[in-house]
Design a binder for these strands. Structure first.
Lengths: 132, 132
DNA sequence: TGAACAATTGACTTTTACGTAATCCCCGAG
DNA sequence: CTCGGGGATTACGTAAAAGTCAATTGTTCA
C-alpha cells in the first residue's frame, strides 16, 4: 500500500529535517550528488533524493569529502552492465571497505583512550572526596 | 630497561614516518597540538610528541577538525585538579564518546550497504557467466 | 489583486588546512 | 673556506565546502 509515502518534499522541509541550508542542497545538486526534479524552476525532492541526502550526511559525519561521497553513492546504484566495469567497481568497493575498517580501528582505539581518560577523571574526583 | 627508546626525532624523520610535510608539523605546532623542544631554533621531537602525532593522524582519518583534535588530546592529558574542571571534563568526554558512537553507527551502516552493493555486482557478474 | 512569502540564481566572502616560494641560518665534508 | 643539505621563518596562495547577500521571480490566499 505504501501509504503516507509522500511524493515530494520542498527544499526547506529538507533543510529543516537535516539541519543544513538551501545553499548546501543546491551545492550538492551542482556537484551532481542529487538530481531533484523541477516544477518550473522550483526543486521537488523525491523520497529517493531524501534517502540520498541521508547517505550524504552519513558520509559527511564520517569525514568523507564530496568526491569520496560521490564515489560511494555511485556504488549503491545499479551495478554496471559491462564485465570490466563490474570488476573495477568490485575492486573500488573493496578499497572503500578497507578504508572504513581502518576508520573503525581508529574509532575503537579512540574510544578506548577516552574510556581511560574518563576513568582517570573519576578516580581523581574520588580522591578529592567527591561522590559520583 | 626501555632500550632503543630514542630520545629525539628530527622533523624530517617524522614527516617520512607519517607521510606528511614539515609544513604540516609546523602548522600543528602553531595550532598548539604539539610542543617539540628546541636546540637553538631546530625542533627536537620527543617520543611523546611522536605519540601525539600518531593520535592526531588518527583524528584526521576520523574526519575531526584541528580544533576537535585539540579538544580530544586535551582529554588524554592529566586530569585537571579542580572539581568543577573535572566534572566539565567528564561531560565533554561523554559528548565525544557519543559523537564517536554515532560515527560507529554510520560506519556500520555504510559497510552494510557496501556489502550489498558488492553482492549485487558479483551476482551480475555471475549472470554474465563470469566465474569469480 | 496585491502584499507577503518561498525559491532561484549569481556573485562574492569566509574558513580550514595546509602548499609554495623566497630567504636565511647552521653545520659537517671535502 | 665553501657549499650542499637540513632546518627555520615569513608571507602569500589555494582548494574544498559552504555562508552571505542581492536581485529576481514565482506563488498564495485574504
Amino acid at each position: 500500500m505504501r501509504m503516507s509515502m509522500r511524493e515530494f518534499y520542498s527544499i526547506t522541509e529538507l533543510t529543516r529535517e537535516f539541519d543544513i541550508s538551501t545553499r548546501t542542497l543546491r551545492f550538492y545538486e551542482d556537484e551532481g550528488l542529487i538530481q531533484p526534479v523541477r516544477r518550473g524552476r522550483t526543486r521537488l525532492f523525491r523520497p529517493s533524493d531524501r534517502h540520498l541526502i541521508r547517505q550524504i550526511m552519513r558520509g559527511k559525519r564520517l569525514g568523507f569529502s564530496i568526491s569520496e561521497i560521490r564515489e560511494i553513492v555511485q556504488m549503491y546504484k545499479e551495478p554496471p552492465g559491462e564485465v570490466g566495469q563490474l570488476k573495477l567497481m568490485i575492486r573500488r568497493i573493496d578499497e572503500k571497505r578497507e578504508n572504513l575498517r581502518q576508520k573503525r580501528r581508529d574509532l575503537e582505539e579512540t574510544l578506548a583512550e577516552l574510556d581511560l581518560a574518563e576513568e582517570a577523571c573519576v578516580e581523581r574526583l574520588a580522591e578529592l572526596g567527591v561522590k559520583t
